[in-house]
C-alpha cells in the first residue's frame, strides 16, 4: 500500500507540475515571440499574465459577463496594451542599446504593476473555475477540471502557433524577419509591423495564460515578476527563440519544480525553477534543446 501511496503522490506532483509548467510554457512562448523579432527580452512579460488574470476577474466576477465574451475582451485589451508598449516605448528608442532596452522594459513592468495595484488593490482575487471544482480521479491522484482546461488551451495555442508560423503569409514573414531582418526587408516585408505584431501576439498569449491560471492560483498584482522569471527560465532551457523547445522545457521546469516542492521542501518550491534557470544559464546558456551553433545569442 505504501508503494501505491507513493506512486499516487508522484502522479499528483506530476499533474501539478504539468499544470504549472503549462503556464511557464505559455509565458516562454511570449518571450520567444518578442525575442525572435527584436532580440529583446521583455521583462514586462509577467505583467501581461497578471493583467489578463485580473481583467478577467473583474469582467466575470464583478461585471457578470459570460466567460467566452470576457475571455475575448480580456485578450483584446491586453493585446492593445502590448501594442501600445511597442509603439510608445520600444519603437522610438534610437539607438536601441541593450542596457537601455532592458531598463525600459523594466520601467514598463513597474508601470503596469503599479497600475494593477492602484486599480485592483493588493489583495488576491478569487475567480470561478471554468467548469466546476469537482476533481477527477486518475489512479488515485486527483486533477481539477480547470487543469484540463489549461492543458487543452495550451495544446490549442501550440497548434495555432505551428499553423500560423508555417502556413500563413504573416507568420512566414515574421519568421523571415527573425532569421534576417535586412533580407526580409529587401523582400518587401514591413519589419516594423512585424515587431508590433510580435508584441501583440506575445501580450495575447500572456493574457490567455493569466486567464486560465487565475481560478487556481488566485491572481494578485505582484505575481508578474516571478511568473516572468520562471517563464524566462523555460525559454532558456528550451533554447531562447525556439518555441517548441520552450513548451517542452516549460512542462519540464514545472514538473521539476513540483517534484522539488513535494519531495525536498515546499518552502523552497519557487526557488527550484530559478535554480534550474541559473544552472542552465551558467552551464549551457544556449539551452538544453538548442545547439550551441544554432543559438544566435542576439544582442542587436
Amino acid at each position: 500500500m505504501s508503494s501505491g501511496g507513493s506512486f499516487t503522490d508522484l502522479l499528483q506532483f506530476i499533474f501539478m507540475g504539468l499544470q504549472r509548467g503549462s503556464i511557464y510554457a505559455m509565458v516562454a512562448m511570449g518571450f520567444n515571440m518578442i525575442y525572435n523579432s527584436t532580440g529583446i527580452i521583455n521583462l514586462a512579460q509577467g505583467e501581461f499574465v497578471v493583467l489578463g488574470g485580473l481583467m478577467m476577474v473583474s469582467l466575470t466576477m464583478s461585471a457578470n459577463i459570460s466567460l467566452p465574451l470576457a475571455f475575448v475582451i480580456t485578450v483584446f485589451f491586453v493585446t492593445i496594451v502590448g501594442i501600445l508598449m511597442e509603439r510608445f516605448t520600444i519603437n522610438p528608442v534610437k539607438p536601441p542599446t541593450v542596457m537601455r532596452l532592458i531598463i525600459i522594459t523594466v520601467a514598463v513592468s513597474i508601470l503596469l504593476k503599479g497600475s494593477a495595484m492602484c486599480f485592483w488593490g493588493k489583495e488576491s482575487h478569487y475567480m470561478k473555475h471554468f467548469s466546476g471544482t469537482e476533481p477527477f480521479e486518475i489512479m488515485g491522484a486527483t486533477i481539477l477540471p480547470q487543469t484540463l482546461w489549461i492543458f487543452g488551451i495550451l495544446i490549442i495555442i501550440v497548434a495555432a502557433f505551428i499553423y500560423f508560423f508555417n502556413f500563413t503569409m504573416t507568420g512566414k514573414s515574421m519568421r523571415a524577419c527573425s532569421i534576417n531582418r535586412d533580407a526580409a526587408r529587401l523582400a518587401g516585408i514591413n519589419d516594423r509591423k512585424m515587431v508590433m505584431l510580435s508584441f501583440a501576439l506575445s501580450a495575447g498569449i500572456g493574457a490567455i495564460a493569466g486567464i486560465i491560471v487565475t481560478p487556481i492560483i488566485q491572481m494578485d498584482y505582484s505575481r508578474g515578476a516571478l511568473l516572468g522569471i520562471k517563464g524566462f527560465g523555460a525559454a532558456v532551457v528550451g533554447g531562447l527563440g525556439n518555441s517548441i523547445g520552450a513548451v517542452v522545457a516549460g512542462l519540464l521546469v514545472g514538473i521539476l519544480e513540483a517534484l522539488g516542492g513535494g519531495y525536498i521542501s515546499s518552502h523552497y518550491m519557487d526557488a527550484f525553477a530559478l535554480l534550474i534557470l541559473l544552472i542552465v544559464l551558467f552551464i549551457r546558456p544556449s539551452g538544453i534543446f538548442g545547439s550551441r551553433e544554432a543559438s544566435r545569442l542576439k544582442e542587436f
Binding site: 527580452i41 541593450v98 532592458i102 515578476a225 522569471i229 544559464l281 546558456p285
Partner: peptide, 14 residues
Amino acid sequence: GHYLAMATLGFGAI
C-alpha cells in the same frame, strides 16, 4: 545583456 539581467534577477529572487 539580457542573460545577465535575468541571471541576476533570478539570483535576487532566490
